[in-house]
Design a protein around this nucleic acid. Structure first.
Lengths: 236, 236
DNA sequence: TGTACATCAGTGAACGCGCGTTCACTGATGTAC
DNA sequence: TGTACATCAGTGAACGCGCGTTCACTGATGTAC
């Protein structure tokens, strides 16, 4: 158990010191992420993390000076991971009629594959540790802005103002956030429930998109859309 | 300081025992809520709460058998509070053309007035304590269902299936959740920032509503809406 | 190549502290007569 | 109404425990010659 780490390797088993240090650092981050599946960050102790890795508590300080520092690295890794996803979706050719379906599929597959990161971010986004909550919200703000920029390239949104694109992007991110909440709480192998969640998410996005051509200010130069009369609300 | 509580009152100052017990219980709940503005529930200790109230730690057990029990009472109170809001909005006459504006105003005013409850729920919804997280999610599910029922009464949604109404309701609740997140984090007196958040929220709801008459299956018997051709997506 | 010294990841004992919970208690409030 | 006893919200000492952090240490890896 405590022999999982570097300790006292015999010859032939030698590992460069720097490499071993990286391995232990990685093990600390992974152990924390694993433990955070069942507790909040500010109740996670340094001793729990080192115990999980199989090293002595004081060894922690060779890698991080506080738990908060470790937590901020996890935030950074989480969003690096998420940006990779968005870049992949963005660089694919865009089959307009399948955009929503493909994006939701890519997103949910990604959440499944990186579940513990998403769970961590979802939880600590409202968590009790100021520095970590702040870092997450900052990343989400950046993420919404990037999505807004991507959306600007789609033909139906060409004429939209930056402000309205942000509004739309944050609505989409909000909807996806609640998808994440549902997905990370699912027992690992319940494909049916997952399919339901995905279907609802697709419909929500589709509903949003259907409102786009009719949105006030969306096409300032064109005549107003025809079928607005039976809407629920009007611009004051 | 420790004389804030019942201890050793002189004559004339007498209070019924049951009433005093209620006061202390209330003080424990309020103190917890106050402390939870800056930390997560599973890092909040029994001793912190009693210290805040000004009683000895062991007195806690006269009111709750565990901190978790206290937390569940807070969840219950939070949603009782929220249901009261919805009932108030529902029972008002409905000026269709102002429905969104009025609802958003009522909602944000309510969040401001009960900020600590909303902050608690937002945080513990993803929190580390299973029982509390479960209770919150259950309440939210009920809340979405109630909203779906209310929505069913609106003329443009008459023909919608229960399933699609749930989808719509959860989209709306998701959007309002992100409004809560932004509001509770605002410094107490920044009216401008609050007005911005409210304006964006109104637009998001308006955008959703604009999609409603065009949603697949929404009006199964009628001819399809005219302006769908330029949508971003199509039904597969 | 071998030798002598430097580096430093991980060790283990020790510390003071806040925690939840136990227990026997106190004294004001409540009740029976 | 007064008196004698029961109730019970809050007290205070004590406990064992896990915590973060300090410190001097060990011994394998790395480097200079």
């Amino acid at each position: 158990m405590s022999s999982r780490h570097r300790a006292r390797r015999s010859e032939g088993d030698r590992v460069a010191r720097a490499e071993q240090k990286q391995n232990t650092r990685r093990a600390l981050l992974d152990a924390a992420l694993r433990l955070l599946a069942h507790q909040s960050f500010d109740s996670l102790s340094l001793r729990e993390v080192t115990r999980e890795v199989g090293i002595v508590p004081t060894a922690f300080y060779r890698h991080f000076s506080t738990m908060e520092e470790l937590g901020l690295v996890l935030v950074d890794e989480s969003f690096r991971t998420m940006r990779r996803l968005v870049r992949a979706v963005r660089e694919e050719p865009l089959p307009q009629d399948q955009l929503i379906r493909r994006s939701v599929q890519a997103f949910t597959a990604y959440v499944r594959a990186h579940r513990s990161y998403f769970q961590f971010v979802a939880r600590e986004r409202f968590g009790g540790v100021d520095a970590i909550r702040g870092a997450i919200r900052n990343e989400i703000r950046l993420f919404v802005s990037e999505l807004a920029t991507d959306l600007a390239r789609l033909p139906p949104l060409e004429a939209w103002s930056t402000q309205d694109l942000q509004m739309l992007a944050s609505l989409i991110v909000g909807a996806m956030t609640s998808v994440v909440e549902q997905l990370v709480d699912l027992p690992s192998r319940s494909a049916d429930a997952e399919a339901d969640i995905i279907r609802v998410a697709e419909r929500q996005l589709r509903l949003i998109v259907l409102g786009v051509p009719h949105f006030r200010g969306a096409r300032r130069e064109a005549e107003p859309p025809a079928s607005l009369g039976d809407g629920l609300d009007a611009e004051p």
